[in-house]
C-alpha cells in the first residue's frame, strides 16, 4: 500500500522544501490515559529518510507520541486517541486499517533490549515468518544475514546464531532488536530511548548505526540526552507537558531556538 501512495501526496511539499519530502503528518493529536490528558493538539510533520529526534523532560509525552505512530498505545486499555496521523496518505487511525499490517511497515526499538527467549536466528526470522515471507530456507538465511549485516552485528555473532538472544551483551541485544525490526523491511523505524540501558561504548555503536540506517529508513528517536539528539538527528522536536513547543532543524534548535522554554531546556537551565 505504501509504494503506490508515495507519488500522489504532497507534491507541494516536495516542491517547496526541495531536498526532503515529509512522510508522516500528524494533525491535532490528543491522547488521554483515562481522564488525564497526555498530549495536547500536537501537529508535527516528519521527513522521509532522515532522523527526527523527540526531546523533552520526562513525562512530557514524547514516548506517548512515538507509540501513537505504530498504534502501540492500543495495547494500553485506558488509552484513548483523537486527531489524525497520516502516513503515506493513509490515516492510520482509520477503522479500516489493520494494525497488524501497519506495524509490519513500521519497526520499533524499545528502551530496554527485549530479544525473545529464542535463538539469535529465530529472533531475526520471527517477523518475516509471521508475514509469510522468505518461506524458502536459503532465502530466509540470506534475509537474516542481510539484516544482521545492516544492524552491524553479523561479524560479531555470525558463529553464534543458535545461541539464545538473551545471552548476548546489552549493546548486542539492542542491535539484535534493530536487526529484528529491519528484517520485516519497514519504511520507518521508531526508537524509544534505545540507548538508555546501555553503556557509553555500546551507545556510540548504536548512534553510528542510526547514521548508517537513515540512508534507507525514516527514523524517529526519543531520547533524554540532548547530546545524542544533536549528534544523530537532522530535525528535533521539543515536547513539554504534553505540548509540542518547537520543531526545527537540529542545528537551529540547539543554537538559536525561537522559544524561551526550548532555550532554557537545551542550555540546561531547566528540566
Amino acid at each position: 500500500m505504501v509504494t503506490e501512495m508515495d507519488q500522489n501526496i504532497n507534491i507541494d511539499d516536495v516542491d517547496t522544501k526541495m531536498e526532503k519530502k515529509s512522510l508522516i503528518h500528524c494533525t491535532d493529536v490528543n491522547v488521554f490515559y483515562d481522564d488525564k490528558q497526555a498530549l495536547f493538539n500536537v501537529d508535527l510533520n516528519i521527513n522521509e529518510k532522515e532522523v527526527t529526534s523527540l526531546i523533552g523532560p520526562s513525562g512530557c509525552g514524547k514516548s506517548t507520541f512515538i507509540r501513537c505512530l505504530n498504534r502501540m498505545n492500543d495495547v494500553i486499555e485506558t488509552c484513548s486517541f483523537n486527531g489524525s496521523i497520516i502516513i503515506n496518505g493513509q490515516d492510520i487511525y482509520d477503522p479500516e486499517i489493520d494494525v497488524v499490517e501497519l506495524r509490519a511497515k513500521i519497526g520499533m526499538v524499545f528502551q530496554k533490549p527485549n530479544p525473545f527467549p529464542k535463538s539469535v536466528f529465530d529472533n531475526v526470522a520471527y517477523g518475516p515468518k509471521l508475514h509469510g515471507r522468505f518461506l524458502n530456507k536459503s532465502d530466509m538465511n540470506n534475509k537474516v544475514e542481510d539484516s544482521l549485516i545492516k544492524a552491524g552485528l553479523w561479524d560479531e555473532i555470525k558463529d553464534r546464531l543458535n545461541e539464545p538472544g538473551t545471552a548476548l551483551s546489552g549493546g548486542q541485544q539492542q542491535r539484535l532488536c534493530i536487526a529484528r525490526a529491519i528484517a520485516v523491511d519497514p519504511e520507518i523505524i521508531l526508537m524509544d530511548e534505545p540507548c538508555s540501558a546501555l553503556d557509553p561504548i555500546a551507545t556510540a555503536r548504536i548512534e553510528e548505526l542510526i547514521d548508517e540506517l537513515k540512508v534507507n529508513y525514516t527514523i524517529v528517536i526519543v531520547t533524554h540526552s540532548m547530546q545524542q539528539a544533536a549528534r544523530v538527528s537532522q530535525r528535533t522536536a521539543f515536547f513539554h507537558l504534553g505540548n509540542l513547543i518547537e520543531v526545527g532543524d537540529t542545528g537551529k534548535i540547539f543554537r538559536s531556538p525561537d522559544n524561551e522554554q526550548t532555550e532554557a531546556y537545551v542550555t540546561g537551565r531547566y528540566g
Binding site: M72, V100, L102, R103, G107, Q111, K112, P115
Partner: peptide
C-alpha cells in the same frame, strides 16, 4: 517488553501469545 516487541513487529495477539509469551 517482550509482548510489545512482538506486537511492534506486526504479530497478532494470538501469534504473540503462541510464539513469544507461551514459550
Amino acid at each position: 517488553s517482550l509482548r510489545d516487541g512482538s506486537l511492534a513487529l506486526g504479530a497478532t495477539k494470538s501469534e504473540t501469545i503462541k510464539k513469544v509469551i507461551f514459550p
